[in-house]
Design a protein around this nucleic acid. Structure first.
Length: 954
RNA sequence: GCCGAAGUGGCGGAAUUGGUAGACGCGCUGGAUUCAAAAUCCAGUUCUGGCAACAGAGUGUGGGUUCGAUUCCCACCUUCGGUACCA
């Protein structure tokens, strides 16, 4: 009987569904294991072959763990709120929920075609009120807690109020943006509104003024990547930085714990390094500078207080609140002009042009507290409002950016560190001897840092301090398609938690934001104004709200009394294995960890870290095929040119635009010689009718308006395309839908091939052609169970020594390779075993039964079919992963490579139990070796038993 | 700029702790089968020279450590990914 994947896969999928094979109980005698995939956003374009890579890997591991006797939780759900659905609603006027449902349905179909062992009864969707009820609930918990730095733990706001009533906030260690101190008496005298403002400075979810990219023309707030050069990506309208009162999360409160927790998890060093850099802990000093003729002080944070004698000017962030207060009348116009310029630039613009030096002088002078010199105060966009204090003391002698700034604006530079002993050392190396630095002269940098901080503290002008680069996370979105924030305000603007959850997202017809940039919800007067005279918050929550805790909901998805029940949480505890892409390295993975630590603080989850082991899958790349379009039209027509011509004639790349072409039109796709022929140019024109009259300058002629004019009588011609490996995506028209591949080769084959491509963590290009190899392998594997007449036939006799060796070798390799997530080599091992058994013409039942279990995680449908044909009961999913026995792997003899001075010159078989001395002697006497050592002295013979022999001659 | 990862045949990749470089697969070449093709099977396939036995070179580049380096160390080059200008 021939292998027919379509039939088999359909049959066993129905069998598994009917028997609820993948349903997982919340209690079991077996040890638990939790395998999680990163939460997908169900985009309209569906999955391409790159997406399932991680899902297949986790599915294989989940199935393997089950065979190893674990109770395995392996769920899936949808991160269903988000921008694309909202954009779709804006464009079409349709409600995003219908669009989202449709997308989820297609996504689910695609996932189902991949044969995953998800327990779909646990599916969650972030846009379901039953789910976001708990997202809102967690938000309110954050709102009603603050972070106590002494206890290193979140505490209820009520406790804080108690403390204020008794002692005020003096000497109180908490994560806060509160600057003024107050006594108990002062506190008790404050109005409700004043108290609320102060509490806001302590809450873990709080309101503050922060900046958004506001586009007046589009009437909406834009994400960073929707803004380019101060203009909106869509339409090219101006974008400005607009201050708005918004919700934030005090992520910074958890900075140190987020850093420390990294030491306890099994993640790659690369990923941990990224998180550490993001958190960005630095040690240094906080320091206040007096301003001449002003009562204000400028606060700075510096990691290099030792360089203070070289601080010859100061730079404030343009948004710094002091700017308006200290600017002199004379400099007013300069500063205003500069602020206008900066206002039009996004943070990203500022970063991308790191080398561009801009700034303006405020006219004010600060006093260097150690030299007592007057130093000018400037503003400059290279100083960011959200890092440190938004102000720096500039030391042009030792800092590249300060130096460029000083050179451009002709400011004083004083050398303060002699680095002549340390060639090539930079500022970050913290080496050298202090010069021109008063009492620090002659000290090494590290010593000077400590000395100067002591002095700073003694003078009372600053303190030793630890600073984090991590910023509080903006939590407000002026959008419709997200969780409503369950907060109400009274007439004074005091915020109250609304525990009437879920606060459902009301229906809407107009999804446009309001003229002032508020969320479209603010138009719903009947919703905004509550019967008790309060006003609802109209901002919605960001994408990361629902995805910061979803893995907990899977543990107990139906629970109506809690986000998950105590019992379920205590059984599943945390995620044992998390697989997903690096794009979430800092965002999602940091927010989830913070939420988890918070929930742990308030006693709601038993663990401090959510994800024990984490693997980043690499990207599957596609080949992007471009055609060259001249930027200047020829006789008013678009003009396409063969890529070979552009390359060979040495034409300037910048005169051409690269236009990605649908890969379906390409001939010789993926090869360096890929091209469009006349037929495919016609297809291209059907797709892009705006180029109907364009000129196509091919190798052997010119095609235009349906006519081909050859240069030398050619019938057809090639318009060569430029092929580049890059991302697979809709915008490059190079996606491959897994459903299409599966239609031809079957699910098992597709799974196997994705794994066979290479290591899970590496990026690698997709090439559909290579799948033939795994397809042949499955046919051969299947063929092991059938005789020449096509009848199922296995040999029930005891396996031979050779058969046992193949079997145990394969068990060892597949088992060990799954454990180290080397799935590509597992497939190789199974291929080799199949080839070996075919050579032996072996169809031994004991051996084949083991192989069926080994292949089951990879090709579950075929395995189930063969399992049942072997007269086994139940499901292969409930089989036991076979154990290997070392005794079957022993060889009688070992083939040793024999090297002379490390270079292999011969191979020879020796008995595997031959002692070292015998090997030494025998190797030297071999005929093949004699000619290499003739006339030379043997200095040494190195024998590594079981491995190799090396003869050193001289 | 900064951070991270990776460079091995025509291609994807293997070599788990320093010990036979190129497993396995794609592609290609030759053969069998076939009227022919597809499919299948067998053999070969790192490069250079040689009919061959064999010899030389070879894991991005240049150095180093070692009896022995794809693996460890130093410097550099290239590619990919991330990025909120490390005060």
């Amino acid at each position: 009987m021939d292998y027919n994947p379509g039939e088999i896969e359909k049959k066993w999928k129905a069998f598994w569904d009917h028997n609820e094979i993948y349903k997982v109980p919340n209690n079991s005698d077996k040890p638990k294991y939790y395998v999680l995939d990163m939460f997908p956003y169900p985009s309209g374009s569906g999955l391409h072959v790159g997406h399932p890579l991680g899902y297949i890997a986790s599915d294989i591991y989940a199935r393997y763990k089950r065979l190893k006797g674990f109770n395995v939780l392996h769920p899936m759900g949808f991160d269903a709120f988000g921008l694309p659905a909202e954009q779709y609603a804006l464009d079409t006027g349709n409600h995003p929920s219908g669009f989202t449902d449709k997308n989820i349905k297609y996504f689910r179909e695609q996932l189902d075609s991949l044969g995953f062992c998800y327990d779909w009864s646990r599916e969650v969707r972030t846009c379901d009120p039953k789910y976001y009820k708990w997202t809102q609930w967690i938000f309110l918990q954050l709102f009603e807690h603050y972070y106590d730095n002494n206890l290193s733990k979140a505490q209820p706001i009520t406790k804080l109020v108690g403390r204020f009533e008794e002692k005020g906030n003096v000497n109180f260690q908490a994560a806060t943006s509160q600057e003024e101190t107050f006594s108990a008496t002062e506190w008790n005298a404050k109005s409700l509104r004043e108290k609320d403002d102060i509490l806001m400075n302590y809450r873990l979810a709080y309101r503050k003024v922060s900046y958004v990219n506001w586009c007046e023309a589009l009437g909406t707030v834009l994400a960073n990547d929707e803004v380019k050069d101060g203009l909106s990506e869509r339409g090219g309208h101006p974008v400005i930085q607009k201050p708005m009162l918004q919700w934030s999360l005090r992520t910074t409160a958890y900075a140190q714990r987020l850093l420390d927790g990294l030491d306890t998890v099994d993640w790659s060093d690369a990923l941990k390094a990224q998180q550490r850099n993001w958190i960005g802990r630095s040690e240094g000093a906080q320091l206040f500078f007096d301003i001449e003729l002003s009562s204000h002080k400028i606060e700075v944070f510096t990691t290099r207080p030792d360089t203070i004698f070289g601080a010859t000017f100061m730079v404030l962030a343009p948004e710094h609140p002091l700017v308006k207060k200290i600017t002199t009348a004379h400099q007013y116009d300069d500063i205003e002009d500069y602020l206008k310029y900066v206002n039009a630039r996004s943070e990203r613009d500022r970063m991308e042009e790191a080398k561009k030096v801009t700034g303006a002088f405020t006219g004010a002078y600060a006093i260097n507290p150690f030299t007592n010199e007057k130093i000018p105060v400037w503003i400059g966009e290279y100083v960011l409002k959200d890092y440190g204090t938004g102000a720096i003391m500039a030391v042009p002698a030792d800092d590249e950016r300060d130096k460029r700034f000083a050179e451009k604006f002709d400011l004083k530079i004083i050398d303060i560190i002699d680095k002549s002993m340390h060639e090539g050392a930079g500022m970050e190396d913290k080496v050298g001897k202090m010069i021109n630095s008063g009492f620090l002269n002659g000290m090494e940098v590290k010593e000077a840092i400590q000395k100067v901080i002591d002095q700073i503290e003694e003078k009372g002008i600053g303190k030793r301090r630890i600073n984090y680069k991590l910023r509080d996370a903006n939590y407000s979105r002026q959008r419709y398609w997200g969780e409503p924030v369950p907060v109400q305000y009274d007439a004074d603007g005091v915020a109250y938690a609304d525990y009437n959850l879920p606060l459902e997202l009301p229906d809407l017809e107009n999804f446009k934001p309001t003229a002032e940039g508020k969320s479209p919800l603010s138009r719903l007067d009947g919703w905004v104004y509550t019967p008790d005279g309060l006003i609802r918050e109209t901002d919605t929550m960001p994408g990361y709200a629902g995805s910061s805790w979803y893995f907990l909901r899977y543990m107990d998805p139906e629970n109506e009394d809690a986000f998950a029940g105590k019992e379920a949480l205590n059984y599943w505890k945390d995620v044992d294995l998390y697989i997903g892409g690096t794009e979430h390295a800092v965002g999602h993975l940091l927010y989830s960890r913070m939420w988890h630590k918070f929930l742990h603080d308030i006693g709601k989850v038993p663990t401090d870290e959510p994800f024990r082991k984490l693997i980043n899958q690499g990207m599957i790349q596609g080949i992007i095929e471009y055609i060259y379009l001249k930027k200047e039209k020829t006789n008013g027509q678009y003009h396409f040119l063969c890529s070979k011509k552009v390359e060979m004639m040495g034409l300037k790349e910048e005169d051409y635009q690269r236009l990605p072409v649908k890969i379906q039109y390409i001939k010789a796709y993926g090869s360096p010689d890929s091209f469009l022929d006349i037929e495919s140019i016609k297809q291209f024109l059907d797709w892009r009718p705006e180029y109907a009259n364009a000129i196509f300058e091919c190798g052997k002629g010119v095609y235009q308006n349906g006519e081909f004019n050859p240069t030398d009588g050619a019938k057809d011609s090639h318009l060569f395309t430029r092929s580049e490996t890059g991302k697979m995506g809709k915008r490059y028209f190079n996606t491959v839908d897994p459903v299409d591949v599966i239609g031809t080769y079957g699910t098992d084959c597709f799974r196997l091939y994705e794994m066979f491509l290479g290591p899970i963590t590496d990026a690698k290009p997709w090439n559909t052609k290579g799948i033939e190899g795994t397809s042949r392998f499955l046919k051969k594997f299947w063929g092991l169970f059938f005789n020449n007449e096509g009848e199922f036939s296995v040999n029930e006799a005891d396996p031979t020594k050779e058969e046992l060796k193949i079997m145990h070798k394969t068990i060892k390799r597949v088992g060990e390779d799954i454990e180290r997530f080397s799935f590509n080599t597992c497939v190789s091992a199974l291929m080799e075993a199949t080839n070996d058994l075919r050579k032996l013409k072996s169809n031994n039942k004991t051996v084949l039964r083991s192989l069926v279990v080994l292949i089951a995680p990879f090709a579950p449908h075929m395995a189930e079919e063969l399992w049942h044909r072997l007269w086994e009961k139940g499901s292969v999913n409930d089989a036991t992963f076979p154990e290997f026995d070392e005794k079957h792997l022993k060889e009688d003899s070992i083939t040793y490579p024999i090297s002379i001075n490390g270079k292999k010159r011969a191979v020879h078989d020796f008995p595997s139990d031959a002692p070292k001395e015998d090997l030494e002697k025998a190797a030297v006497e071999l005929e093949d070796i004699q000619k290499w050592i003739e006339g030379k002295t043997i200095r040494k013979v190195i024998v590594v038993p079981g491995r190799m022999i090396n003869i050193v001659v001289g």
